[in-house]
């Protein structure tokens, strides 16, 4: 077992965001966390990452408390909090992931760091953009840069928050194909609101709306969604037929 959340609660200014979460994540999982906006998905990720402290309950990483954990976790956030004009190139962004390992080298990265960064950029097909300034990139390219940065951390666990929120459908498929490939060597947790689309890629699902509504390895169906959203929603199943009208 890689990550175990036990009776986890989180509240913020008297609002309960997460309630009694019990979730186990195993090595090799490709877990999709779905749920409505404001359901606490990002909060849950941030707790696993150690960016937020749970109000109650505990989180174990490889059977150890979060603080003592040596697990290499990488994160691709939903929103990129930087100024559009920040003077930095694609390769610089990716190389910064190597920083903790080459903390006190005068100015330069080691040869190995450069190789790792190069591999990460090739895997995400952005090697040709290496010298580009970040502000010249499209949404899809930017997303790949931040996935490359996460890969350059050489993580055992990769966490992505709505990785395809700002890009078109074609690029969305490309990114999930890439994630599927990466899943062969690392555990992946991905947050999405598009339950139908991700269901063809993931092997486990957790439906979150303040508390875990559903958590299983079984394929998801209409009754799950109904439970989750409170009313029947048309489900888009990309893998079987062309998408039809949905009424949400």
């Amino acid at each position: 077992m890689l990550v175990s959340l036990q009776n986890l609660y989180f509240s913020y200014q008297h609002n309960i965001i997460l309630e009694n979460i019990n979730l186990d994540i195993f090595t090799g999982d490709f877990l999709g966390i779905v749920g409505p906006n404001g359901g606490g998905k990002t909060t849950l990720l941030k707790i696993i990452l150690g960016l937020l402290k749970p109000t109650a309950g505990q989180i174990l990483i490889q059977q150890q408390p979060l603080k003592k954990s040596q697990l290499n976790i990488a994160y691709v956030p939903q929103f990129f909090n930087f100024a559009k004009t920040f003077p930095i190139s694609v390769s610089e962004v990716v190389l910064l992931a190597r920083l903790p390992y080459t903390w006190l080298r005068l100015g330069y990265y080691s040869k190995q760091d450069k190789i790792i960064a190069q591999q990460a950029m090739e895997e995400t097909s952005i090697a040709s953009l290496a010298k580009q300034a970040l502000k010249h990139l499209s949404g899809g390219q930017l997303q790949r840069v931040f996935i490359a940065r996460a890969l350059a951390c050489q993580p055992k666990l990769l966490i992505l928050d709505e990785p395809t929120a700002n890009i078109d459908f074609r690029a969305e498929e490309d990114i999930f194909d890439l994630l599927k490939q990466l899943n062969q060597r690392m555990t992946i947790i991905v947050v999405s609101h598009d339950i139908g689309f991700i269901s063809q890629y993931i092997n486990k699902i957790a439906c979150l709306n303040r508390t875990l509504v559903y958590h299983s390895t079984q394929p998801i169906n209409d009754s799950v969604i109904q439970k989750l959203y409170g009313n029947a929603v048309g489900m888009i199943q990309h893998q079987q037929e062309p998408p039809h009208e949905s009424d949400h």
Partner: peptide
């Protein structure tokens, strides 16, 4: 600046990522 150029660059660019990487 020569010694900490990259650390400064990282905390200016993305504080959340810096925190996650233990910087």
């Amino acid at each position: 600046t020569l010694l900490f150029y990259r650390s400064f660059l990282l905390i200016c660019f993305d504080q959340e990522f810096a925190t996650l990487r233990g910087i």
